[in-house]
Design a protein around this nucleic acid. Structure first.
Lengths: 132, 132
DNA sequence: CTTTTATTCAACCTGTAGGTTGAGCATTTT
DNA sequence: AAAATGCTCAACCTACAGGTTGAATAAAAG
């Protein structure tokens, strides 16, 4: 794989993260996702509990669709929405990766503190794992 | 706890989710977080790799700070930024909750399909758990 | 004490997100 | 065929996000 290709791939991955995080940043859209977690539903059904116009909800759905979090298939005049089960994998992966680093650093700091407390002049010693 | 209090608490939780998801939706801000995952750093250090002005980065940092993902403590004229280790717990929780529901539904559908294939007239039968 | 360095504050510009309303287009119902 | 239903498209408005530049403030270095 050429360097340019790799960069392009990374770019789309970044863009996808952008889109999914942005999609999840709106409370209305999160509510829609939660609704769809129970069962698939038509646009009108989804819009019903909200105060805003049907059009506004329709727009939110399009954002979710563009981010890949929800999918649509038409059945006559009804548009049936459902969640794309794998769509959160990438964001979840990013978050877990970050937490892993943070935990590792916390772990190291804790180890250092313990060492300093026990023996202010010694270097590395035993370690006990498992943070969070 | 009175009903109004509960609603207020839910509202702030929602707002916090909004803020963190929105903070993570920007690639520059994610890069800043990744940088801070290695070690804490001053504003200028953080800004260095980016094309944009220092002021722009400063703004991004404020967004991250407002969302609770990064923390700041001043040391002389330097502002030292670091990540708030627990700040992703809530978003991570939300994502995991959603995935749990999705997986449960996928599981149920799969079970149904297996049943129909094996014995098109029978009802519930054995179940094997563990998705993903 | 003057100058440099680190950072924020304030004003401004441009694009886009999220909402509205009013048509318009298919499909289903009568 | 006509009317009702489900949904989108298009134009528009307002607010805010993300960037710029040009001070202003605070601490450190000369």
């Amino acid at each position: 794989m050429i360097e340019t290709e790799a960069r392009k791939k990374a770019a789309t991955r970044t863009a996808r993260l952008d889109a999914v995080f942005a999609a999840l940043a709106d409370p209305t859209r999160r509510a829609i996702i939660e609704r769809l977690s129970r069962s698939e539903a038509r646009v009108t059904e989804i819009a019903e509990p909200f105060q805003m116009s049907l059009n506004a909800v329709s727009k939110h759905i399009r954002v979710l669709e563009a981010s890949g979090v929800v999918e649509r298939h038409r059945k006559g005049r009804d548009h049936i929405l459902s969640i794309n089960t794998g769509s959160l994998d990438e964001v979840d992966g990013w978050i877990e990766r970050m937490r892993h680093f943070w935990d590792a650093r916390l772990d190291a700091m804790e180890r250092l503190l313990v060492e300093l407390k026990q023996d202010p002049k010694s270097s590395h010693k035993d370690r006990k794992h498992g943070s969070r």
